[in-house]
Simulated scan of single mutants.
Amino acid sequence: MPSLRDFDAAAFLRDHWQKRPLLIRRAFDDWTNPLAPDELAGLACEPEVDSRIVRHTGPQEWQLESGPFAPGRFGELGDSPWTLLVQAVDHHVPEVANLIEPFRFVPDWRIDDVMVSYAADGGGVGPHFDQYDVFLIQGLGRRRWRVGPKCDEASPLLPHDGLRLLAGFEATDEWVLEPGDILYVPPGFAHDGIAVGDDCITYSVGFRAPSRGDLVSAWADHVLDTLDEDDRYADPGLCPAANPGEITPDALARARDLVLGALGDQQAFVAWFGRHVTEPKDERIDWSPEEPLSADDLGELAHAAGTVRFERNPASRFSFVREASDAVILFVDGASFACSGAAASLAQHICAGRNFALAADALADADVMRLVIDLADRGCIAPADED
């Protein structure tokens, strides 16, 4: 599993996170590219994988195609510089999922996915800006990155149905990244990456930042689903109106309390938020096992080996909220689990790492056994293959 070399996470968060870009040369202790170009192309042919091809066909002209692609499509792209983009590759390739590990000084609920791009010489997606933090890891080949000033919704864009490309772009910094180099780009900063030579692979470890509008809309929709139709405005202490056209301060206060009382329930918001931010990125894939795991199955595994090792599904999202010193709510893939005692300790342990082990005596706890079986039957964890 890759690890960052001589990297001060606290200093990075203080000086660069969501403030300014940072180039990190030779970022890893021992860099090995985890995914071959042919493997990436194979993923782009799968119907459950989101993929795109972007071709640069002229000055300020790009063409966009959406996958899945026929295997022969890549040989038909011709001489125009092109890029293949494949989303959420970490969900399908454990070695790519391992690239998230060095950046887990940022909370897991902020992680979006690892997008992987392959570009022919001169390929790129054009100058653009994103509304999320991203670590751009050069995996194979070389890519020239130009970074410009911070943009916003008023920044002029080129007319294009599928790509948000900047109409004007002036770089303030420029670097050519080699394998193992990283470029961090905060939200809003203009950037443009162009492959220098063929076989250029870049891994984009992206961190989502929900907009205020998205959160308000999703929370309000959830609250609406929980309201009783009979829960209505009431004014049993109404006095005769001095002027029937006036909306009185008392009426305004009642209406405001009716609305904010429903939206301001702290405990309900906590439960909703944890489920909301851990919802699966892609509902098309069912990771549940063909045969449910039973307590007897776990007992046999523990008896045979003394401990049972488990691995987290790289596509699953795990987070928790602490309720008390010995109680947490565990959120996994949009579901919640109230845990206390040994089960709460296990929930935090699962969230901390990508794999864990349980001894036979730990599995003797009924709450621990129940939690493990539930997560395994949902496809969120699985006993590790000892081979």
Score class of each variant (00 low, 15 high):
Val259Gly: 13
Thr202Arg: 03
Asn313Arg: 10
Asp297Met: 04
Thr307Arg: 15
Asp231His: 07
Ser217Pro: 04
Cys200Ser: 06
Asp198Val: 03
Asp198Arg: 01
Gly334Trp: 05
Arg254Asp: 02
Gly334Cys: 04
Leu252Glu: 09
Asp230Leu: 13
Ala302Glu: 10
Ala327Val: 00
Asp257Ala: 12
Ala218Glu: 04
Leu227Arg: 14
Leu215Val: 15
Ala305Thr: 10
Val205Thr: 02
Ala305Ser: 15
Cys239Met: 13
Ala335Asp: 15
Asp225Ser: 15
Leu301Ile: 06
Gly264Tyr: 02
Val321Phe: 07
Leu224Gln: 12
Asp225Arg: 14
Val332Ser: 03
Asp326His: 12
Asp326Thr: 12
Val216Asp: 08
Pro280Thr: 00
Phe331Ile: 01
Ser217Phe: 09
Thr202Ile: 02
Gln267Arg: 15
Pro244Tyr: 05
Ile285Ser: 00
Ala251Lys: 03
Gly261His: 06
Ser325Ala: 14
Leu238His: 11
Phe320Trp: 05
Glu279Ala: 13
Phe273Glu: 11
Asp265Trp: 03
Ser325Lys: 13
Ser325Leu: 11
Pro292Lys: 06
Trp219Met: 09
Arg309Ser: 14
Tyr233Arg: 04
His303Gly: 14
Phe269Cys: 15
Ala220Gln: 09
Glu229Lys: 11
Ala324Met: 10
Gly306Tyr: 02
Tyr203Ala: 02
Val259Phe: 08
Leu258Pro: 10
Arg254Ile: 04
Ile329His: 11
Gly213Tyr: 10
Leu293His: 01
Pro240Leu: 12
Thr248His: 02
Ala242Gly: 06
Ala234Asn: 06
Ala255Leu: 07
